[in-house]
Nucleic acid binder design. Structure first.
Length: 489
RNA sequence: GGCCCCAUCGUCUAACGGUUAGGACGCCGGGUUUUCAUCCCGGCAAUCGGGGUUCGAUCCCCCGUGGGGUCACCA
């Protein structure tokens, strides 16, 4: 039997990076074994649905370059892949369990339940549990209630005194006492299944072989095991993966510390492959020193038993940034230019600072800025003086020479020198050589001369090499900016 | 609180029971350099504590401590 994995997102908000990490593991396991990855939308909580969330989460997954074999948009033999379209199935299976005596109707009102919990708490019971009140109902009482259209739910009849074994691919064999389990509701009064029922029914019907999910699901796994047993179904493999936390804290990812939605990282200027590479290593490693992985290499090297047992893994945003810089540097200037232009078109269509009409010029700019970029979004700020005249701060103009007079002398010297260069000869080696000859001849210190020139041309003190900038800007602009700076003095 | 899980540098982690406990990010220092960045070289830095088992424990067992998850008609 082939390996079939799935992700089962709820459309209750933006797709979370944690979900993307799990998706990566699901994807790798399926692909490595020539299996299938299924996407199933778990929208059984009608109250928390967010309009448009399904489309957005599918879009994001596509933007990260991950494809799935069955699910929304692609269909498949087990369609529909949206739980709200499978309601009849869950009802049918819930009633099957009732007939088998593994589940039962419950007509208790919310008031009674609240009162029950209060009583149990006041008695000092460590956990509150349903008292199986409706389990004792006679057939007559049940059918009478049903015919009166009384609101009901269906509950799982959890057996007493059982030790439930869960065999986890990451954690190994685990045991849970059934006495700690509540008679979980399977079918809600609105006719929708709870997660517990729907996940088991669907995973079975969709022939899922491996359930990979966060540690947070561990405590509900024995309930699922009970359900599989009640149905007489084969239990799929389970693998619970470490949760993600914020650096310097034991708390889960927080918006205050940065993005948490998968889509937001893209908007911030992260490359999909960088985010993916970073995510792969959150709880997994190949056991070698290789740590640059594309999706294909990841699939090749992935192994579920190299997933970390640790319960919490730090989402180290600094390392993510490093990965992003690494991938930015790895691109050719041409490809990176395309990335940067596409990025701004998508997220900042009004970004007029980029000279769209001359992509070749932008490519030259990218070449100079590439190794200084950690995010695509930084291009705007770092490249400003290539596209428009910078504001020149007089203080900066004299900071490196020490005086107005000295700066004037330096800039006037460059002005005369550059004015004498033929436009056709305005190229990096010529500018570089003549400039060095000039400072030697005039007795300027390299730093004072070049830094003053840098400020005059860019308005900044940290830029790529100043002669590269001068060559790219062109003679006219360089002359202009030197003159303007002289006027500032 | 009950139940369950987890525990190596600050972080992600490696180490068939025997290693000077390795790598990466970050940090610090040096080199290249007109600034920044890149790149190269170097450095700091860890086995939670206590008991066992063993010739020998990061590794196996127990207890403690710490952290986390979960206890809904949410997933």
């Amino acid at each position: 039997m082939s390996v079939r994995t799935r992700i089962a997102p709820s459309p209750t908000g933006e797709y979370h990076v944690g979900g993307l990490r799990t998706l990566l593991f699901d994807y790798a396991l399926a692909k490595k074994n020539n299996g299938q990855l299924i996407i199933r939308i778990e929208d059984t909580d009608q109250g928390r649905l967010v309009p448009g969330a399904v489309e957005r989460l599918l879009d994001v997954i596509e933007e990260y370059g991950i494809s799935w074999d069955e699910g929304p948009r692609v269909g498949g033999p087990h369609a529909p892949y949206v739980q709200s379209e499978r309601l009849d199935l869950y009802k049918k299976y819930a009633k099957e369990l009732v007939e088998k005596g593994q589940a039962y109707y419950c007509f208790c009102t919310e008031e009674r339940l609240n009162k029950l919990r209060e009583e149990q708490r006041s008695k000092g019971m460590p956990t509150t549990k349903y008292d199986k009140h409706c389990f004792g109902l006679s057939k007559e009482e049940i059918s009478q209630n049903l015919s009166q259209n009384k609101s009901y739910v269906i509950r799982l009849n959890v057996p007493k005194d059982r030790i439930i074994e869960v065999d986890d691919l990451v954690l190994g064999k685990l045991t849970f006492p059934s006495n700690d389990l509540d008679d979980q509701i399977l079918l809600k009064s609105d006719g929708f299944p709870t997660y517990q029922l729907a996940v088991v029914v669907d995973d079975h019907l969709m022939e899922i072989t491996h359930v990979i999910r966060g540690f947070e699901w561990l405590p509900s796994t024995p309930k699922h095991v009970l359900l599989y047993e009640a149905f007489g179904w084969k239990i799929p493999n389970h693998a619970h993966v470490p949760l993600l936390k914020e650096a310097g804290s034991t708390k889960k990812l927080s918006k205050r510390m940065g993005s948490v939605a998968a889509a937001d990282f893209l908007k911030e200027g992260y490359l999909p492959e960088a985010v993916l590479n970073f995510l792969m290593f959150l709880g997994w490693n190949p056991g070698t020193e290789k740590e640059i992985y594309n999706l294909k290499e990841f699939v090749d090297d992935f192994s579920i038993d190299r997933i970390q047992k640790t319960d919490l893994v730090t989402f180290d945003r600094q390392k993510l940034l490093w990965y992003n810089g690494y991938y930015i540097r790895a691109y050719s200037a041409e490809d990176l230019t395309t990335k940067i232009i596409d990025y701004h078109k998508k997220y900042y269509p009004d970004a007029l600072f980029i000279n769209w009409t001359d992509p070749l010029y932008t490519q030259q700019v990218v070449r100079l800025l590439q190794e200084r970029l950690k995010l695509l979004s930084e291009f705007q700020l770092l490249s400003s003086y290539f596209y428009s005249k910078p504001e020149i701060d007089k203080k900066l103009l004299i900071e490196f020479s020490g005086s107005v007079e000295r700066s004037s002398e330096i800039l006037n010297s460059f002005l005369t020198c550059y004015d004498g260069i033929e436009k056709s000869g305005w190229e990096l080696p010529a500018i570089d050589n003549l400039s060095h000859e000039l400072i030697k001849e005039k007795g300027f210190k390299p730093k004072e001369a070049f830094m003053t020139l840098r400020v005059a041309l860019t308005g900044q003190t940290t830029t790529p090499p100043v002669f590269d900038i001068a060559a790219l800007l062109g003679k006219d602009i360089v002359i202009d900016r030197i003159k303007d700076s002289l006027n500032e003095l």
